[in-house]
Design a protein around this nucleic acid. Structure first.
Lengths: 328, 328
DNA sequence: CGAAATCATGAAATCGTTTTCATATTGAGA
DNA sequence: TCTCAATATGAAAACGATTTCATGATTTCG
């Protein structure tokens, strides 16, 4: 493996000059530039990035935390982030926290050991107070997660509104008996806020909700199917269901139609996210602008890395988009 | 940021001894170990990984090439790989080639510049001759892609067999008019081989196939739906379709049932991969053991990194698994 | 008891860059 | 012609660890 020294020797110049050519520093004559380029080519030289990182004190690498990359929402987010990062010469290290506090804490060391220039958090397991100290080691940007106090840039959607507009849509369609499916609504701020939005819309319309129309811990297609099994046994079933996920909505619709129910006449369902599966099942859904979320986040991240100033709070609020299909 | 020097000073010892404690080298007395640990704690010290990388000439980082992370097959692969890598102290850099030769070539520089210890290729855009020279810079492992000559470890499935068993299943179910949907069967060895397997099964059963039952460039749910639109206009439509993807199969089934066709009575469909969507649509499908593929690949990769021997060809052939549901 | 092996520690070299500092040359303006 | 700035180059320091080499101290064993 050729080093900068070898190149310098072959070109009959100093390391310094070679380095200047590599980093195109202004004060180098055309002639020397040619000499260096020729030598580099001849030796098939590439600068050693470990050395460069050490000297420059930066890695051109960004860590992205997601719970699991197989979740389509997060893989879409990461897809766009990687693209944007690559465009600007950065690489992405993928960190799956698997919804575990400990796993998240382990990964936090990356920033401390200077393996990455910054952290993007698309989900947070630990309390902010646990994470906050790591800000001393590099910028952190939050994406689609929020926290009212953290002094970091944050790209997010108002999930209360998300819950609200989805529910409002159902109400406008004339449904009055509304059910609600949520994931882990206790720990997740997102789920909690969507529920708030749901209740707000209900309230405004003066509608009541039965306890038996509330379903928690629903995440998967299978959960959607099981939920329908419960619904069909109710003496007074809901007419429409707000779900926090397209998977659950798809499961509901599938189980219902299999049972001979008509969607949306017998049961209307609204999903969340607009995943490919939503199109397949023709689900009405509340879309989050994933591409914008991702690219804005990456932009803020790179900006934070470049301006080495102290991290400050900066909120970027993005809008939802209702997609009406035939499930409502 | 505290350095090893600071720790050494505080502990009243040399850098060398501190380094020995960090890397738990045998010859250090318990007493000094305590002293060093205390100093490290006090200074909140963490070894700088750039320095360590430079000195050790290794990065504990592995690059994974995928076309796009949003493809569920690849995201599942990456999910498991990341988990296995993390378990052994390695990190993953995600590289999306986006099916572009140029993009793949750009990423190849990562290995050359010593940013990663090795490369995992889950798809290959360029000719092997283009990639082969990079073997000089570190190990490469192929995953689910193949090439008959490359002198690298390779974890794969016999896609001819994949096509064969799926088709055989349809034949055993009694269908005689078989259609075939494929992606980009010209450039992809995978798609080509599945087609070979399909034809082999057809041949063995003495069945003929009409040209109009062959559909190429089908990838998405939407493609599946459009394909059905063509099929329903045929005067002599196929009774069953082999598809190279669950997405296409799902699209077909959805469009067909919407049109009032019964699946599998009017049209049987078999998918490929066993994605979550296959369960939703109750698709019979040919499953690839993704978790095993991923973990075996990662194991071979880490093995290759550790034993610094010359790369040699090593084939790991894994079996398919037919999953029978109600679409056939 | 003396030689050899083992244990314990530190000084200095090393990994391969970039950056600082010093110095020489050239060109422009007074 | 002299000064000052701009241009061009190189020597050496720095980044922060690990590794080699050297040197004592201690133990083992014949």
């Amino acid at each position: 493996m050729a080093t900068i020294q070898d190149v310098a020797k072959l070109a009959g110049l100093s390391r310094t000059t070679v380095s200047r050519v590599i980093n195109n520093h202004p004060y180098v004559t055309e002639e020397k530039k040619r000499l260096v380029s020729k030598a580099m080519q001849e030796l098939n030289y590439v600068p050693n990035s470990s050395a460069r990182r050490l000297r420059r004190q930066q890695t051109e690498t960004i860590a992205v935390y997601v719970p699991r990359i197989t979740n389509p929402f997060f893989s879409h987010l990461v897809e766009v982030m990687e693209k944007e990062a690559a465009k600007k010469g950065y690489q992405l290290i993928l960190c799956q926290t698997r919804y575990k506090k400990q796993q998240e804490r382990n990964f936090l060391e990356l920033l401390k050991t200077k393996q990455v220039d910054g952290l993007i958090l698309t989900s947070i397991e630990n309390d902010w107070s646990e994470i906050e100290p790591y800000l001393a080691y590099g910028p952190i940007v939050m994406c689609n997660e929020y926290n009212d106090t953290a002094q970091v840039p944050i790209v997010f959607l108002d999930q209360i509104k998300g819950g609200y507009i989805g529910t409002k849509h159902l109400i406008e369609k004339g449904y009055t008996k509304l059910g609600f499916c949520t994931g882990n609504h206790k720990s997740s701020r997102l789920a909690h806020d969507r529920h708030m939005g749901f209740l707000k819309a209900l309230n405004e319309a003066g509608l009541q909700m039965k306890d038996e129309w509330f379903f928690s811990s629903t995440h998967s297609i299978q959960d959607g199917k099981s939920t329908f099994e419960i619904i069909k046994e109710l003496s007074d079933p809901p007419e429409a269901i707000f779900t926090g996920s397209d998977e659950v909505a798809a499961g509901l619709v599938k189980a219902a139609t299999d049972e001979g129910w008509k969607v949306p006449e017998d049961l209307a369902v609204i999903g969340f996210d607009n995943q490919p599966l939503a199109e397949l099942m023709e689900l009405t859904t509340v879309e989050q602008p994933i591409e914008t979320i991702a690219s804005q986040t990456m932009e803020l991240m790179i900006e934070s890395i470049k301006s080495k100033r102290k991290s400050v709070r900066k909120e970027v609020l993005l809008p939802f988009n209702m997609i009406q299909r035939s499930s409502t």
